[in-house]
Computed example of a mutant assay.
Amino acid sequence: MRELLRTNDAVLLSAVGALLDGADIGHLVLDQNMSILEGSLGVIPRRVLVHEDDLAGARRLLTDAGLAHELRSDD
């Protein structure tokens, strides 16, 4: 799994999840339950991961949706 993006924005997280679901690209959101520990302040960013084989397609999908500025660097 590779990190696609990292954000504190719950709306962005939801939109990215919907885009990935619509394109049938499996993804995993990490650190979502950390809000319990931090008191729901949004301090700890959530990470969206996709399978290595889907990374290029997911990056292209988010770029086409105008979200290229949210993507993690392509290491």
Rank of each mutant, 00 (worst) to 15 (best):
A58E: 01
I25R: 00
D9R: 09
R47I: 13
D24H: 12
A23C: 00
E70N: 07
L12N: 05
L62M: 08
E3K: 15
L61Y: 02
D74R: 06
A68T: 03
R47A: 10
L5D: 02
G66C: 09
R6A: 13
V11L: 15
L49T: 05
V11G: 04
R60H: 09
T7I: 06
R72Y: 05
E3L: 09
R6C: 10
S35G: 03
R47G: 01
N8M: 03
I36H: 10
G17H: 02
D75P: 15
R47T: 09
Q32R: 14
G42P: 07
D75H: 15
G26R: 15
L19N: 04
S14T: 14
L41Q: 13
D64C: 00
L37H: 12
S40D: 15
D24I: 05
A18S: 12
V29I: 15
A68M: 04
L20G: 01
M34Q: 14
G26V: 06
G66D: 06
R72A: 10
L19V: 01
L71F: 07
N33E: 15
D24M: 13
G17R: 14
I44C: 05
S40T: 05
S40E: 15
A68V: 04
V29L: 13
N33G: 14
G57R: 13
D21F: 02
G22F: 01
R59S: 06
S73R: 10
G42W: 03
P45M: 07
S14H: 12
T7Y: 08
R47E: 02
A65L: 00
V11R: 13
N8D: 13
V48N: 07
L49E: 02
D53Q: 14
Q32V: 12
L12V: 06
D64T: 04
D75M: 06
L30D: 08
E52D: 15
A65M: 00
S35A: 15
D21T: 11
H69T: 10
L71V: 12
G42S: 07
T63N: 11
G66E: 11
G26W: 03
L20P: 05
S73I: 01
E3H: 06
L49N: 00
G57V: 04
I44G: 02
A56D: 13
A56I: 07
